[in-house]
Design a protein around this nucleic acid. Sequence first.
DNA 1: CGGCATCCTAGCCGATACTG
DNA 2: CAGTATCGGCTAGGATGCCG
Lengths: 125, 125
Amino acid sequence: MTKAKASSTLSQNKGIAETTCPITYVMNKIGGHWKCIILYYLISGPKRYSELKRSIPAITEKMLAEHLKQLKEDNLITKKVEQIMPPITIYSLTPSGEELGPVLMAMADWAIKDSEHFQNLRMQG
Amino acid sequence: MTKAKASSTLSQNKGIAETTCPITYVMNKIGGHWKCIILYYLISGPKRYSELKRSIPAITEKMLAEHLKQLKEDNLITKKVEQIMPPITIYSLTPSGEELGPVLMAMADWAIKDSEHFQNLRMQG
DNA sequence: CGGCATCCTAGCCGATACTG
DNA sequence: CAGTATCGGCTAGGATGCCG
């Protein structure tokens, strides 16, 4: 993993674009399909692993665990483990993650408006 | 394209989740890595195909054309073609697309703040 | 309960060539 | 200028099973 492939320009371009385009920077952090959803469910407060899984039925264990790890590495969430048996793991938003909250809420808001548009269009059509 | 594959549960889940989770709805529309970037550049006003291409050096023709088509199908942008030779194509935001503007600006805003956080951390480290 | 390792497929995406 | 079509590699992501 120390050496990037030469045939792929995307990963390299992504790195370059990240320093010049703020949207690219954001997409590299929360661009994955599930990242935003996970963060969205964490806005309402810290959650344990199983709660997140129940909140997002469409996600697989692999995706959840993987994206949680990435979000942690990107300093958007923190992980707190109770070393008992069975273990309890709590995920919370970091300050950076908290600041993303309004953005996600704005996205959700837009979604609701936009789907209303569609329903209106359907009624007219 | 009329029949979905049976082996993949994701596309089906996406469809189901889309009706219950607003963030999923948004991600299905602008989740692609380039969609947000294209929309972001269209906020400042209508642009022609070649202008977009120049604005986003990292994107390939295929991705640009493909995502422009999807954005049009999702009613986020409109396409206006001057049927002359050589042709001129202008892409603009629809009202729905315009309403996404503030969200994208908020994302960009967060990105700038967040990258400052990192630089501060590095200085302390 | 929480999460990682393996295997495998679907779809994203780059490169190239062709059309109006 | 503004696309479309085809080929092919890479990787995201689903299914399953094992471990602390």
